[in-house]
Each structure stands twice: as structure tokens, then as C-alpha cells.
């Protein structure tokens, strides 16, 4: 498969000193559902920002749709066909919804993207109405962003990106701070987008959703390098890997969809056994 997003030996450092990413080589093909997993500060958000051509590698190269992504093209005041094409193709849902909701009302927010595409006004309106309908935002359409709840904000953020109808969707910690119902709604939406052929790239450290939103997982270590790039089920069953990447704690681990916690108030060895079946198909012993 021809990769649509192609990173070769990419490194990124802030102010030339603080490393955020090191030697990242990664290809993402059309229609793939990929998750970036990593602890806080591992560089997931930076990687997404590079994939959205908001920042540029300090070393290595990034190609999107076969073209080299360079600041000369993306930061130029001159109109550029590739830049317009890229912005139509790739949508980015930011982690902080307040960053993304800069318009006065929900309606204006959803309309912002289509307006930038220079679509005819009627088409913009039709698209906004369709999105508002699809995302069940009718009651919120004239509301100001600061009056929305966290879940509503996230919905509007996603609607505002989907309004451009991108083929590639980048999401940064999309489930952070969402209640279970909104989380489930989001997972189902991402699955639906995946089924319709969209490329969905999600950065998260929420292990509960990874299996549901991506078949492929890229684990980024705390040293800002890719640790593994494998099938999601393989990654999730590799407890040593998850421990090393600080994605689970030895006293907190997954069993199927349940997160299991051991709270210790002593420093002595102990064992416990779960009677029920687990996602790895056998009872689980845990020793400390």
C-alpha cells in the first residue's frame, strides 16, 4: 500500500534543546486506523502536530500524499495548491477543545472550515446543517463555546473538523475528560469513520479504547522513540512492553475491558488470583 503519511528519521526538539521526538520512521496508509500510545510527555501530540503540518521536523523528512511537507510551502503567504489540498484532506482534533473553539457560536464554528474551502454559501450551509443534524447539535447551534460542557465542546470540535470532510483524521487524546456515554459515542463514531474508509490516527494513553479504535498501535517510549509498531492486540498483550512504556503500572492493569487496580499499603510480597477469564485467556497471577 502506498503510504499517504510518511515520516523518515524524524526528530523534533523545542528550541533546539528539549527533545520531543527522536528518529521516528513511520508510514500510514490510506484507510488505516492507527493509535499512538505513550506516557505523558512522550511526544504523541508533537507527532500529530507534525502530521498536520503545524510544526516541521528539526531533522528527517515528512512526506504527505507523496509531497515533501516544508515550511516554505505551508508558512508562505502565497497561495499553494498542495497546501490547500493537504488542509482539505487532513483534519486535526486538538486535545484542548478551547483552543479549537474560537468562533462565537457553535454554528459559526462548524461553518469555519467549509468557508475556508471557498465552497458556495449554499453548500456551506447545507454541510453545516448536515453535520449539526448528524452530531445532534441542534440545541447548541446558537450557543457560545464557554457555555458548553466538556463533552459538548468535544462534539463541536469533531463536527467542526468533519465539516471539511477530511480523509485523514488526527485526534489528540479525544476521550480525555469525557463521561462514559460520550466516550462510547466517540468510539462508535471513530469506528464508523474507519468503516467508511477514513484514515484515523489517534494519540492516547487510554488503554480501554485502543483496541476498539485501531488495529495498529505505535508505542512511543519515554525516550521519545518508537518502541514498537505492531497489531494492537499484540501490543496490549505484551505486559512487559506496556510496563516499560509507562502505559500500565504493575499495580494497575487491564482485564478485558476492566481496569484492575491493586492498592498496596505494605511492601511485602503477595499473590492474588482472578477466577474469571481474562482477555489473555487465563487466570492471572500477580506478584509484588
Amino acid at each position: 500500500m502506498q503510504p499517504i503519511l510518511d515520516l523518515r528519521d524524524v526528530s523534533y526538539s523545542y528550541l533546539g534543546r528539549q527533545n520531543a521526538l527522536l528518529d521516528i520512521t513511520l508510514q500510514i496508509g490510506q484507510g488505516e486506523q492507527v493509535t499512538f500510545m505513550g506516557a505523558n510527555g512522550s511526544g504523541k501530540s508533537t507527532l500529530l502536530a507534525i502530521l498536520n503540518a503545524l510544526i516541521y521536523p528539526t531533522e528527517g523528512e515528512f512526506r504527505a500524499f507523496g509531497n515533501l511537507v516544508r515550511p516554505e510551502v505551508f508558512d508562505s503567504l502565497k497561495e499553494d495548491r498542495f497546501r490547500s489540498f493537504f488542509r482539505r484532506k487532513v483534519g486535526f482534533v486538538f486535545q484542548n477543545s478551547d483552543v479549537q473553539l474560537f468562533s462565537s457560536t457553535v454554528y459559526d464554528e462548524v461553518a469555519f472550515g467549509p468557508l475556508q474551502l471557498d465552497l458556495p454559501r449554499d453548500e456551506v450551509k447545507a454541510r453545516v446543517e448536515e453535520l449539526i443534524d448528524m452530531m445532534d447539535l441542534g440545541k447548541l447551534r446558537d450557543r457560545a463555546p464557554h457555555t458548553l460542557s466538556g463533552g459538548e465542546k468535544k462534539k463541536v470540535c469533531i463536527a467542526s473538523v468533519l465539516a471539511i470532510n477530511p480523509d485523514v483524521l488526527l485526534l489528540d487524546e479525544p476521550t480525555a475528560g469525557l463521561d462514559p456515554r460520550t466516550q462510547l459515542w466517540l468510539i462508535e463514531l471513530l469506528q464508523e469513520l474507519g468503516r467508511s474508509g477514513k484514515t484515523v490516527v489517534t494519540a492516547t494513553h487510554d488503554l480501554d479504547i485502543i483496541e476498539q479504535i485501531g488495529q495498529r498501535s505505535v508505542v512511543i517510549g519515554e525516550d521519545h522513540r518508537i518502541v514498537v509498531d505492531r497489531r494492537t492486540d499484540q501490543v496490549l498483550n505484551d505486559l512487559d512492553l506496556l510496563l516499560a512504556a509507562n502505559l500500565i503500572h504493575r499495580h494497575m492493569h487491564r482485564h478485558g475491558i476492566l481496569l484492575h487496580q491493586h492498592v498496596h499499603s505494605h511492601g511485602e510480597e503477595h499473590k492474588h488470583r482472578h477466577e474469571q477469564d481474562h482477555d489473555h485467556g487465563r487466570p492471572h497471577d500477580k506478584a509484588k
Partner: peptide, 10 residues
């Protein structure tokens, strides 16, 4: 950045 990401070019 969020504006640029959604196609804003000034």
C-alpha cells in the same frame, strides 16, 4: 494553529 489546520490562510 487550530485555525490554520482548518484551512485559514489569513
Amino acid at each position: 494553529q487550530a485555525m490554520i489546520s482548518r484551512g485559514f490562510n489569513g
